[in-house]
């Protein structure tokens, strides 16, 4: 039974007709073609699929599409207004990624942290980032990049 769901994706109004229980992740990826948001666990415990819903992080793999009706969703593709977002730039400058698969989720989580806490210390970074796994082990560089991006993120 298909349902029509309308929401904003990266600032643009979109409308899809899908099973209302479909996780947001698969709608973003398969229906709308934004593959920057990654599948990795499907149960909301690894963070690779993290997006922003109305400015707050959410695990898109366990978010039913019906729950984002009329809300604003932002994915990694919508983060930068022009070129790279300061957090993405810090990721490039610190050469954070190895395989890169988890990094969209890492970056979306770091952006929220820096909006709420412009200058986090290591313990605050650990607390905010511990829900996003990186099998390649880039955690030390993530910490560094978040420090580098500190003060660069405005809450908008």
């Amino acid at each position: 039974m298909l349902t029509k769901v309308s929401f904003q994706l990266n600032g643009k109004q979109v409308s899809v007709e899908v099973d209302p229980n479909t996780p947001l992740l698969w709608v973003i990826r398969d229906t709308l073609g934004f593959t920057g948001t990654k599948y990795s666990c499907g149960m909301g415990i690894c963070g690779s699929c993290t997006v922003h819903i109305d400015g707050k992080t959410a695990k898109s793999c366990i978010t039913p599409i019906a729950s984002v009706a009329n809300k604003s969703v932002m994915t990694i593709e919508g983060l930068a207004k022009d070129g790279l977002h300061p957090v993405q730039q810090a990721w490039v400058d610190e050469e954070v990624p190895q395989c890169g698969y988890c990094q969209p989720g890492q970056i979306m989580t770091a952006v929220e942290l820096l909006k709420n806490n412009p200058n986090p210390d290591d313990a605050e970074i650990d607390a905010a980032m511990k829900g996003v796994l990186c099998r390649c082990g880039t955690y030390q560089r993530i910490r560094k990049a978040i420090h580098v991006a500190s003060g660069e993120v405005q809450d908008d």
Partner: peptide, 17 residues
Amino acid sequence: KSLDTAYKVDGSLDFGY
């Protein structure tokens, strides 16, 4: 610097999945 980092941080790098 790695030649492909920008594509890893803006979501544009395609993996098999």
